[in-house]
Design a protein around this nucleic acid. Structure first.
Lengths: 212, 212
DNA sequence: TCCTTTTGGGAATGATCATTTCCTAATTGA
DNA sequence: TCAATTAGGAAATGATCATTCCCAAAAGGA
């Protein structure tokens, strides 16, 4: 019997329809949250099933019944990671009135995610890019998709800023968005070496110069 | 008998003193060049010894006699990678007269390394950061060292640009260097998803706005 | 020439890993 | 209440992996 004292990190997936059979005793989202941490820290091949069963509090049998595969678990964790980050980003974006303010919020969000223990843990998209982009076409497609999603969001904010007068008109929204994307992903790489807030936070403000 | 048709990628390591015993039949630097490619593409744990022996054209016995360990091979490949990149960077820097021109050269160099097949292959420093930064303190120290080396170089160029009038004086050299470092490492991550030159090259010019 | 040393090569080894299997338990639906 | 279905659990399995061992070969030094 597994008892979850901590709820999942929010963003519940589609609730399971009851159906026949013994009900699942663990919270899938909570398990995926922990899988995200293990895969982010150790990489895909560096995360052994025994590491995962221990971190998720599951036996190998339950893990395989729920997620088919180590690869299936990674894909589920990846999808949840992207959904979770998207939701947190949306929350952070709520107060931002202008295109520039939205880009500032995104930069702050990534600077915050890239320092201290969270920074050391790293980004699952980056881990997927490094460990599986050349070996697993389906993971590669998801990594590409996640980056393009981000790039598109940023391009939208640049265009929005150009419309509201907070971003220079001479900039190419796509090229600027791609550069901002590099700044964000670069923060995640640099953050893996353990930087503090004093080092990362100022990057966000300085990067805004790219919008002038 | 192993015959090397291609010389190593330049930057020979310290030549081996002859000593007694059967002479080594393979070129250590060439072998390391190939190990760099395998580790960069597949990550540390994703690169099996059988992958490495095949790519290096060595048997497991020879590999272990020369490099002790899989870890030892990775460390040797890492050191060679950093040395090789440093030398190529130095070459690219030769024609650059001002601080700004040097930073432009660095950005161009990374944009070039991050597109096409080389971009897909990826950066060994990024791979080390993702796969081993939390698990292997010695590798973590080398990754940190490589990034700090780069950061310090960039800070020097910023200060140089401030002295020669090509970089704005109000900028903090360290903070600006750290932001440029994020741009560079971010290019390497984004490049893993297979971007072409048209996408990556303009990033270098646009990033120069950070120096105004 | 012979001894020492180091390498090349390939098979053997032992560990680790991902996955499966089998049994028990807990549900739903009839 | 019973059949069908699904989950929990732990041991077993088979594959893969990193590493070692052993032997033949190629050098230097005495």
């Amino acid at each position: 019997m597994i008892v979850s004292y901590h709820a999942a990190m929010t963003a519940p997936s589609h609730p399971r329809r009851p159906g026949p059979g013994r009900p699942r005793e663990f919270d899938t989202d909570l398990a995926l949250d922990r899988a995200i941490a293990v895969f982010s820290e150790r990489g895909y091949q560096g995360a052994a099933i025994s590491d995962l069963t221990q971190a998720l509090g599951l036996t190998a049998g339950s893990l395989y019944k729920a997620f088919t595969d180590k690869r299936g678990l990674f894909l589920a964790a990846f999808d949840r990671y992207v959904a979770l980050r998207t939701e947190r980003l949306r929350a952070v974006l709520e107060g931002a009135p202008t295109g520039r303010a939205k880009i500032k919020a995104v930069l702050d969000f990534y600077a915050d995610s890239s320092h201290g223990a969270d920074g050391r843990r790293g980004c699952l998209v980056v881990a997927g890019a490094v460990d599986l982009a050349t070996a697993d076409p389906e993971v590669a497609a998801r990594v590409t998709g996640a980056l393009h999603l981000n790039e598109g969001r940023l391009a939208g904010f640049v265009a929005e800023g150009q419309a509201d007068g907070t971003v220079a008109l001479h900039l190419d929204p796509m090229a600027t968005a791609r550069l901002l994307l590099c700044v964000l992903q670069g923060m995640r790489v640099v953050g893996k070496t353990g930087r503090d807030r004093m080092e990362m936070a100022p990057l966000a403000d300085n990067a805004l110069k790219l919008l002038d």
